[in-house]
Amino acid sequence: MSVTTDATALAERTRRRQFREKIVTHVCLLAGILIFVFPIYLTLIGSTHDVNTIGRGDVPLLPGAEAVANYTQAWGAGGGRYMGTPAGTMLANSLIMALCIAVGKIAISLTSAYAVVFFRFPLRMVFFWLIFITLMLPVEVRIIPTFQVMVDLGLTNTMAGLVIPLIASATATLLFRQFFLTIPDEYVEAAKIDGAGPIRFFIDVVLPLSRTNIAALFVILFIYGWNQYLWPLLIVNDRSLETVVVGLTKMIGTGDQQNEWNVIMATAVFALLPPVAVVVFMQRWFVKGLTETEK
């Protein structure tokens, strides 16, 4: 009798403790999420009010009625103290840049990894190491000389100049090499018996097998391309080639109170939306790609 009541009491206590622990966990996670979501919420709200409400500093916590006007102005005309580049143009530039960088990196990394893994030729490992070493040379540490090369080649203020120098990729090459090494030798033998050459094998066997890796890399590289900052800042001063991340901070300038903050916030939403959407909708590939490429 007393044993069972003790047991029930203990079970009850444990259940209560577990319940309390669960609540604490939920509260911690919700607090964490709030810290990340609130800045975006505030920006969304700001983009629905008129310029004076924000300029006065009285941003309410609920949406206003100016959303359509603000987003139309941002999309078509731009804002900021000087009339900036329209967000429509900047988004198109960012999109082209991000897509070209992602596709380009994947394409040349696929072919170079294929060469290193499936062929044997003089200087093979030298080439591999040359690609590998570029991991240690981020754009930021070679700004000035790279800029001079761009000037010499006449690539400043061109989309090609924005994209091509960023296409080389040691990480993508490493990832594909790693993956190609796991393709069983029997596949290659079977292909050879069937009379398929290296190009046939690449297109019919290797590419389909690499699908998930390509998807995962695409997400990461698209975001990498979209979020470029220093490079476009250096290479482009032609308004028609402005990308949205750089364009947005140019609109803000020194952060003057007189800025058209409502339009700036609408542009910020435009700048955020595409990469966030890519991460959210392709989360599975993205997490896989991230943890596998960088480790």
Binding site: L29, G32, I33, F36, V37, F38, P39, I40, L42, T43, G46, I54, G55, G57, V59, I223, W226, N227, Y229, V245, V246, L248, T249, I252, G255, Q257, W261, I264, M265, A268, A271, L272, P275, V276, V278, V279, V280, Q283, F286, V287, L290
Partner: peptide, 27 residues
């Protein structure tokens, strides 16, 4: 999911979001 998405935010955009919150006049 709600904790993963900020990965997509460019550093410069993160700065802009913080500016909207902590600007002395409009934040």
């Amino acid at each position: 999911t709600l904790l993963i998405w900020p990965y997509a935010v460019a550093p410069a955009i993160a700065a802009v979001l913080w500016l909207f919150m902590f600007h002395p006049n409009i934040g």
